[in-house]
Amino acid sequence: MTRSWRILVVVLVQTAVLAGMIGAKVWTLETGREVLLATEPVDPTDLLRGDYVDLAYEISLVNVDLLEGAPPAREGERLYVVLAPEEDGLWRARRAVRALPPRSADEVAIRGRVEQVRETAPVFDGDGQVVQEGHATRLRMSYGIESYFVPEGTGGALEALRNEGNTRLRILVAVDGRGSAAIKGLIVDGKLVAREGLF
């Protein structure tokens, strides 16, 4: 094989990698089930890094009691969190398991990584009210949907909405059958303001 052909192989493989990144995300967007998630305020000192907004969700903190089976969760571990819709239309965590579980018709399983095992953190209810002061062990999870990239200088409005609590900003997320998630849209005050797709 000549050197030119070898360069062609390099460019084809690298293109395939990039296309794979896009394809996996678009597959999730197109085939995934839509779930509506509430956002949580983020520490204001870590709001906007560069031109993207950090997003945290109610389901970013999972009570350790929801984890089924032993041993205790450890940082870096992959877990599937089973979500189900509640009366307000928001999807919340029901249980967490280590392998892709069977789900009922009204459930989806979202795959995440345990970033931190937190001790003695307060527990909030759906309205952001403290319902339990400390002494709870919770898992801080990441699902690959924690960043929303915005045009430079336009993140402020989104941050303000996000930090008003979980009432105004909702994130529409697609979760596919393997548990992969992708941000599909932004809902502000009940109105879809942005929708994501291939183009």
């Binding site: 990039l18 990144m21 993207y52 990584r113 949907i145």
Partner: peptide, 24 residues
């Protein structure tokens, strides 16, 4: 070739931005 490698890295980042991919 070096430029291609540099652009490959840049593209990983920019594709991640475009499709809101915030992986590990």
């Amino acid at each position: 070739v070096l430029l291609g490698v540099a652009l490959f890295g840049a593209n990983i980042n920019l594709v991640a931005q475009t499709y809101h991919i915030s992986a590990h």
